[in-house]
Design a protein around this nucleic acid. Structure first.
Lengths: 106, 106
DNA sequence: TTTAAATATTTAAATGTTTCGATGTATTTA
DNA sequence: TAAATACATCGAAACATTTAAATATTTAAA
């Protein structure tokens, strides 16, 4: 006797308006910010502000500015830990953005 | 007797460098250009320059500028037809961009 | 071969972005 | 409580983008 399992995943896509889409695209349109996001892959989706500053060959105010763009676009979620700041990658917003892009093809 | 078909699609993902990714994201970070891309859904993936100019409440040179951004990012493929210009949505590049975004999550 | 139509380019003004130095604000440690 | 650490904000310079008016180019039609 065999059982066949059909596995699938339901993704609840929060529909994104154009303003939001534009903001995310703009946040993604900078070399430093792309570098930042790619680092999350290596650190299991969470990174500290200080680690990012080391990574980037930019001054601390510049890094702060870039992180603000990513947080304002909801791509990163900031979590305060004492006087340090931890950032978590917001995969849901990334998925919503991807869904909006896919919708352009239908 | 039953036959079960497992259907799948192999997508050949052309790996995209950060420069390219940045260019596409920037092309997508403007309200007018988002509006342009969304129109393709309604017109089966191809649109004429004149249709886009009507759509956009901008002067012809401005529209020309926006279309250039999208073409330079390879999101649109221009095809000359006499003195008209037809644009075709480049779904492959869109897929590559989506793949690069998905890769941020791994 | 003029003339008209469709699109591109140039130029310039207005606006937005990136960057850094200087400074401000929390928070922890001495 | 004073000093140190981590991060944010302000102000200004450099640079990029958006937009439109004017003009150029390409192609088709008269």
């Amino acid at each position: 006797m065999f059982y066949t399992y059909l596995c699938f995943r339901i993704q609840f896509v929060r529909m994104m308006d154009n303003k939001k889409f534009e903001k995310i695209a703009r946040a993604l349109s900078d070399a430093s910010r792309i570098t930042i996001l790619q680092q999350f892959k290596k650190k299991k989706g969470c990174l500290y502000c200080a680690e990012i500053t080391e990574l980037l060959d930019l001054t601390q105010p510049s890094v702060s500015h870039h992180l603000k763009q990513l947080v304002d676009a909801d791509l990163l979620i900031p979590e305060k830990e004492g006087r340090n700041l931890k950032y978590v990658l917001n995969e849901e917003v990334l998925d919503d953005y991807i869904s909006s892009l896919s919708a352009l093809k239908d």
